[in-house]
Amino acid sequence: METIAEQDIITLKKVLRDSGGYDFSNYSTKSFVRRMEKILYDYKMDIYTLINTLKLDNELLERVVKDITVNTTEIFRDPAVWQAIKYRLLPKYHSQKEINVWHAGCSIGMEVYSFEILLCELGLFEKTNIYATDLNTDVLATAEKGVYSYRNASEFLDNYTKALCVNPFNYEERISLPISKYMDFDEKKDLLKIKPFLLNKAKFKKHNLVSESNPFNVKYDIIFCRNVLIYFDQYLQNKLYGDFWDCLAENGTLVLGIHESILGAMSAKYEKKGLMYQKKG
């Protein structure tokens, strides 16, 4: 792949900001460069053609922005986290009247539905409000439909079993819970469909974490933002941990990717609780 000169990266970021209103200045330089190298390779373009075309072609600009953002998500990715949510976190909310949850950077929504399934199992589905946002409108459209490739989600069965059918605090307990309760499959057509009663629960909305504030004007008991901030620099990470702190209800919980940790100044404002972070007063 072509390597891109530093000056060209600066020009590119300027064009994306001036022509599209997207600010990548606090994106981690390394991941930004990696994404741009991949885009040039995929589009079969050189950097100068790309920069010049971006100034004129808004459609291309929107497509490039979508391709810069990383959209990996899985059903019950990292089962240990979901076990902790099920056994440690959610039981606290049985007595609360309603629960507000925000999936920030929800991508195609697989974790939104994973979480909804847990809520159903714990009898908390009805009283929970779910909000989900992403910068990329394509992934939001997929998320709302809840229809996925069966093959691409091939690990989900294993993750589902680990997350829902095993009690990590009592290994002798095996919970029988057929996944067909929540999803339909068609292996031949390569389809995995979330059952209708889980759809229309979450409110999906386009939202830019970098430039916009709390998108729904509520305080959240739980914010999911997994493997999103790893693409940002330290300054922006710290700002967003601050924004999340402001958006969280008292004692609210922030769920990050299992290999992410809060570094820097904001780390003092959260308490690490196992695989999650709790807001400190």
């Binding site: 981690s28 991941s31 994404r35 990996t72 990292d78 493997n227």
Partner: peptide, 19 residues
């Protein structure tokens, strides 16, 4: 399930969930 990059003259690790 993560890519592992070594950065900053070998002093730091960064992870990614890219393709």
């Amino acid at each position: 399930n993560y890519h592992m990059y070594i950065t900053t003259s070998g002093t730091c690790i960064s992870l990614s969930t890219e393709e």
